[in-house]
Design a binder for these strands. Sequence first.
DNA 1: CCAAAAGTGTTGCTTGTACACCCATGT
DNA 2: ACATGGGTGTACAAGCAACACTTTTGG
Lengths: 237, 237
Amino acid sequence: MNSKHAALLLTESYKQHAQHYLAVDCTILGYEDGELKLLLYPRGFEPAFGSWSLMGGFVQQNESMEAAAMRVLLQTTGLKDIYLDQVAAFSDPNRDPGARVISMTFMALIRIDKHDKDLVRENGAHWWPVTKLPPMIFDHHQMFEKSLDLLQQKASTGLIGRELLPDRFTLMQLRNLYEAIFQRTFDPGNFRKKILSLNVLERLNVKNTTESKKGAYYYQFKKDISDQKNDRIVKFG
Amino acid sequence: MNSKHAALLLTESYKQHAQHYLAVDCTILGYEDGELKLLLYPRGFEPAFGSWSLMGGFVQQNESMEAAAMRVLLQTTGLKDIYLDQVAAFSDPNRDPGARVISMTFMALIRIDKHDKDLVRENGAHWWPVTKLPPMIFDHHQMFEKSLDLLQQKASTGLIGRELLPDRFTLMQLRNLYEAIFQRTFDPGNFRKKILSLNVLERLNVKNTTESKKGAYYYQFKKDISDQKNDRIVKFG
DNA sequence: CCAAAAGTGTTGCTTGTACACCCATGT
DNA sequence: ACATGGGTGTACAAGCAACACTTTTGG
């Protein structure tokens, strides 16, 4: 297009352009039994009927992508006000063999214990440990990988856990979450010192005695902290 | 489509959904005269005719977003094989008063000296120092901000410069680039040591004498290095 | 000679990392 | 008693940051 030509065109000029189906696909991540888990459901229509797929939906006419993702999450988990992050857009013309669909991936972090289990079961959905994922349709595995990258990056530069752990948790539980996210171990003592030095957690005067004989103090996130960025939480070897 | 049957099924299940105009907007960044600069051009059609805007274009029917961004860049700068990164999608239903357009922002890094200046001039475009940007249309300033965030992040975790500097450059030029990106100063000695310790540059036996009396060695990026990630280049105070 | 950048060295401080070590307690 | 995790401390290494200092050369 050359600019002199374009300059003559008015708003109606939008009409000459192609329109596209636009979808959102959500990598819904939760933490349960010491494992990071991804919610997948069997696709309900062709092509690839029955194959495992991320939760997704189409963006409607008067809806932002974020709103569409929220809608999908509400419909599938019954949860509102969920932590959401744009991950990446996938727009290869042939990514979906059925039609030309562009999809934006969102990462959602939820507390598995809080979601509507019946609703999830109704959809035939299943929580898969991220270490043992089944084959997925189209580019959904790439979507997951990018989401995990983003999660790791977020967990490195800020303390993650608010969205994945219960209100109160022990430092061991937090460490186990980090170990699940990074798929490696952290020195318990060093982890404790690093996390506490960030000054975003407060200790409660209650102990959890179910996971250790001695009992470990519960911690919770400080209320006022506005998700500040700390550089490099994860640098342990 | 591979099979009429599949196409029919698909039409049925996808047809009910809305379709959208999809655009790409490029934050084209270059480095010149010690400043980081953004290429903007006066919008050629209503609404907001004449206001400054990022380079953009619509995604066509059989084109990925990346391909669309490449096309825009070729048309406006004459450059191929440009470094591109997805930044973020903007999908507020009212972001463009002219029509419902969803836009993906791409960040492009180019060498100002290599682009087609006539082509840029022809479009009425202008390179603006990022510290003195004019008002821009719609959400384009947000797009720029997100792009700059991404650039800073990239410059922190890896050595940036390949795409913005000439083939050979002095460490002072590289430092000036970093100072432009982060809008702060770096200690010359420490910067030098840090950068060289990354082991991605090689020194040439040629000196630049235009910027200092003593003359400074030229460096270039090692050929084989596959853009490895180094953690935390920027941590200087 | 002076200014200005190139380039090297030194020193103090912070932080990561690998441990050792005692504590509390359920089995 | 002992295994297990809780919690603290120590010691070494690595890296950052501030800054001193020497070199080179054009004006």
